[in-house]
Nucleic acid binder design. Structure first.
Length: 913
RNA sequence: GGGCGCUUAGCUCAGCUGGUUAGAGCGCAGCCUUCACACGGCUGAGGUCGGAGGUUCGAGUCCUCUAGCGCCCACCA
């Protein structure tokens, strides 16, 4: 059963090469189902990965190759450890990038009011002429076009992933806009609704006026923009003109004449939306004014002076306008203080047509004549002119730059409008979510702080509705009353077995399509879900939640979520929320956060900077193993420099593995098949024949190998794949430079067949172990070499353990301490084969090399006399491999001289020729 | 404003719970071509571990302060 050596050397190329390994092996892995998930495995035998679905409408860049390689190394390690690895791939085709691309590619626009057209042919494919009017299509048609376009993108992605060597089970794929995703999203939503964990409300909402949609807290970014403080003159008391002096404000601080109240604002155009002015409750300047009213300039609206701790005495004049709504603070004030609404900004970003309530007739007239219908920018300019003309603008505007909230994809600042939206109750879950965050194992651990910060900073429930056309619709209809108004208080919901539904074309139970939009009938909910409302369900979608309960039971909760650290607050957080609400547990046990790729200037690589490198070109130039080697050098959570030098090193390593393996197994190397002897049968048997006490150095190197295995295994278990690679690599190079050189002649049989057998067995065992340790990182070269003498894939071979080759090895294995390194002190005896035997031999070999290099001679130059002066213990260690040293160094004669430690030295007398 | 991370040879990085003269690779310099490997091998030069204090017999490693870089978050009139 132990894999045998190749029966003929014909299996091994005389001149091994990396060329073509990617295509060769990715095809065989597919044909042989090497990475197919075995769904008969029980949960404790399964290792399930919640793979991040890449956005298919974009293009792959090297950062993808980087982070997906990290996950793949873990998948391969776990597979070799005996787990049945569930490693699916999702394609993210849900969301704005796809919507835009489909619109442009086919020259269509989604119009949910249209009926579905079977067999629809789009007006264009890929080359829509500018100016051609786009054709409106129903949402189901639009989704079909989306699926059609992304299918070709997915093929390109899959081909790249296969070439990179991701050990994905390609029968387990899903899309985020496809049927499974729609069904899971709608089912999960309906269950939230049934449990009152989702609700609809009319509320002030952050609104992007270009995209015409609400956005969630998690999608906000701040941008520094230019603005200006404008100092406005409010009038104390009722009525304009400020008759009744309010003593409290006069002559205090920055305030001016009695009866005037000066307020700084960056948004004078919101003056007609002003509902109050606010100061800090402890601010002495305004104590006497609290609970009085002041009158706004121009519009003559009486607004109260209120106190709230969020008011900052150090900003402006210490007193601020509250407008409905200028920023998020306005919402807080408005809520806390029970203020009325005077909205002026419409969903199109223009000021609404009719003046808000509360204005004096003259003010209302000015509003409607001068401001209504203007954009925010235009209105601001006009407002400043009006204030200037009325003398109610004090001084010149003072330019500043300040942070303003934007939608992360938006180009203009967000406005706040009042609208009906769907929410998931997350605020009430804050404590349990924080506890889940502590329960999750984070790699690296410090990333947990970002999750906790985010949970603690939540200010509202999760807004999940979007006023877009493309996306997963809410599976809801509303009854239309006799007056023609929809009744939002009681939604009509489909049964789960009808899912997925599109309410704009499907009809609620008990209704017919003719009743759509008519009194007594129904209307569809017009909105679609936020993409995170779907992405947050990837474990459920990939795992067959409710569609395939048997499968789901074997996978959930999953083991690993790999992802970028920049989307902890979105993807990671929302997935934890959904799992908590639906399953009352974490969706996975471990989260591994990958870093970013930095270009040589230490900037994050991104398309907008034009510094992205496409992965395929790199894979072809250096080989996939080489690119993976570079990727694996990036530890979890650590940003990594894009470094082609590291790829060259990786390529060099792969080539070295080929050549060293060819030496051990191949036609120009050792004739193992012919003279391997009983011990050379592979990794399963004892490496050194029992009773052969002569080759201590062989046992020493196996002892080192066993420590390497333990270390690499422990590192992998802790998700520190980088360390596992680093240790394996340095052992391997050292092994090639010293051990292989040391025993080469003995392995060729120069010292007799019995002593050759020990060397060959050790070489074969070490190669077998090292190939398996390298397999998660360099899957192609390790598979190629493995195939030279094993019929089955190395990627299905058992991960090495120290126990596997420790038999007969005089207690070396299992991390038996490193006491030997201090000159052999504490060794049970030099001939016993402690680690120091190997270390000592390597050291002396290096001394010999140094002498030859110093003399400008070849390494093959003969040494006439080698004089080693050292302590008795040390000489005993060196003499344990004396014959190997003679052969490796071409040493004719060795003179061993015992001296004290202070007198230790080496003399190398080179011979002629 | 709050939080987190990083700072070790020219470059990219190791250095795990503090312990002998601080490590690797790349780059650089020099040497070496029959017998696994020129897509190579060998050898070498190169660092007061960001700065200042402190704890300790002993600190790159722990504590305090500090500087620079980067990231995340924030209710920023």
């Amino acid at each position: 059963m132990a894999p045998d050596l190749p029966e003929t050397k014909a299996d091994i190329p005389a001149k091994p090469s990396l060329d073509g390994l990617e295509s060769k092996w990715s095809a065989r892995w597919e044909a042989q189902g090497t990475y197919r998930f075995d769904r008969s495995a029980g949960r404790d035998q399964v290792y399930a990965i919640d793979t991040p679905p890449p956005t298919v409408s974009g293009s792959l860049h090297v950062g993808h190759a980087f982070s997906y390689t990290h996950t793949d190394t873990m998948a391969r390690f776990k597979r070799m450890r005996g787990f049945h690895v569930f490693y699916p791939m999702g394609w993210d085709d849900n969301g704005l990038p796809t919507e835009r691309r489909v619109q442009n590619y086919f020259n269509v626009r989604c119009d949910p009011s249209l009926p579905y057209t079977p067999g629809f042919t789009p007006p264009a494919t890929g080359d829509a002429k500018k100016g051609d009017h786009p054709v409106g299509v129903s949402r189901p048609n639009f989704v079909e076009l989306c699926e059609r376009l992304t299918a070709s993108d997915e093929q390109v992605f899959e081909a790249t992933w296969r070439y990179l060597g991701l050990s994905v089970d390609w029968t387990q794929t899903y899309t985020t806009a496809g049927g499974r995703a729609r069904r899971a999203s709608q089912r999960a939503f309906l269950r939230l609704l049934a449990r009152d964990q989702a609700y609809t409300a009319e509320a002030p909402t952050l609104w992007d006026i270009d995209f015409r949609t609400a956005v969630a807290q998690a999608e906000l970014v701040d941008k520094e923009v230019a603005g200006a403080y404008h100092r406005l003159v409010f009038h104390a008391g009722s009525g304009s003109g400020g008759g009744g002096g309010v003593g409290g404000a006069s002559g205090v601080g920055s305030q001016s004449a009695a009866g005037e109240l000066l307020i700084d604002t960056t948004r004078p155009e919101l003056l007609p939306a002003c509902v109050a002015v606010v100061a800090h409750p402890d601010d002495g300047r305004y104590q006497a004014m609290f609970d009085t009213v002041v009158t706004t300039p121009i519009f003559g609206v009486e607004v109260p002076v209120v106190a709230h701790p969020l008011a900052d005495p150090d900003k402006g004049t210490g007193i601020a306008m509250i407008c409905t709504f200028g920023d998020v603070t306005d919402i807080v004030w408005w809520r806390d203080l029970g203020l009325p609404v005077r909205s002026v900004i419409g969903r199109d970003g223009r000021l609404v047509g009719s003046a808000p309530p509360g204005m004096a007739p003259a003010g209302a007239a000015i509003y409607e004549a001068e401001l209504a219908g203007r954009t925010v920018r235009q209105a601001q300019r006009r407002m400043v002119e009006l204030l200037g003309e009325s003398g109610e603008l004090r001084g010149e505007p003072r330019a500043i730059t300040h942070p303003v909230k934007f939608y992360e994809n938006g180009e203009r600042p967000l406005e706040i409008v009042t609208s009906r939206q769907w929410f998931i109750r997350t605020l009430a879950q804050r404590d349990v979510l924080a506890a889940r965050g502590r329960e999750l194992k984070w790699h690296p651990p410090f990333m947990q702080a970002r999750f906790q910060n985010w949970v603690e900073g939540l200010t509202g429930d999760w807004l999940i509705s979007r006023q877009r056309f493309f996306g997963i619709p809410f599976p809801l209809w509303y009854r239309v009353g006799d007056s023609g108004e929809p009744d939002y208080s009681a939604a009509l919901v489909p049964s789960e077995d009808r899912l997925p539904v599109d309410p704009t074309t499907d009809v609620p139970d008990g209704f017919s399509d003719s009743q759509r939009g008519v009194p007594g009938g129904f209307v569809a909910d017009p909105d679609v879900m936020d993409t995170w409302a779907t992405s947050s369900l990837t474990p459920q979608i990939a795992g067959g939640w409710e569609d395939d309960p048997d499968l789901f039971g074997r996978l959930f909760p999953m083991d690993l979520r790999p992802q970028g650290h920049d989307i902890i607050r979105t993807w990671l957080f929302s997935t934890v929320v959904r799992s908590q609400l639906e399953h009352d547990q974490l969706p996975w046990r471990n989260a591994v956060l990958s870093g970013w790729i930095l270009d040589p200037d230490r900037k994050k690589m991104s398309k907008s900077k034009g510094n992205v490198v496409t992965p395929m070109a790199l894979l072809e130039e250096y080989g996939s193993d080489a690119v993976r080697y570079w990727a694996a050098s990036g530890r979890p959570g650590t940003d990594t420099a894009f470094d082609e030098g590291q790829m060259k090193v990786g390529r060099k390593l792969a080539i070295k593995i080929l050549n060293a393996s060819q030496f051990v197994l191949g036609p120009r190397g050792l004739d193992l098949a012919g003279a391997g002897g009983p011990a050379a049968g592979g990794e399963a048997g004892p490496a050194v024949t029992p009773g052969d006490a002569g080759e201590a150095v062989d046992r020493a190197v196996l002892g080192g190998l066993s420590r390497l295995v333990d270390e690499a295994t422990a590192a992998f278990e802790a998700y520190d794949y980088t360390r596992a690679l680093e240790r394996t690599e340095s052992f391997f190079w050292e092994f090639c430079d010293n051990y292989v050189e040391l025993v080469k002649r003995r392995a060729y049989g120069d010292l007799g067949s019995r002593r050759a057998a020990s060397a060959r067995a050790t070489l074969t065992t070490a190669l077998s172990v090292l190939l398996r340790l390298f397999a998660p990182f360099l899957p192609f070269v390790s598979e190629e070499v493995w195939s030279w003498w094993h019929p089955a894939s190395v990627h299905r071979a058992p991960w090495p353990t120290a126990a596997e080759f420790a038999a007969g090895d005089g207690g070396e294995a299992g991390g038996a301490g490193e006491g030997g390194e201090a000159g052999g002190a504490g060794e049970p005896g030099g001939a016993g084969g402690g680690p120091s035997v190997y270390a000592a031999a390597s050291w002396l070999l290096k001394e010999i090399r140094r002498a030859k290099t110093g003399a400008g001679r070849s390494q093959r130059a003969p040494v006439a006399l080698l004089t080693v002066r050292d302590t008795a213990e040390r000489i005993a260690l060196l003499r344990a491999s004396e014959d190997d040293l003679r052969q490796a160094g071409s040493v004719a004669e060795i003179d061993w001289v015992e001296v004290g430690q202070a007198g230790a030295s080496v003399e190398v007398e080179l011979g002629a020729g």
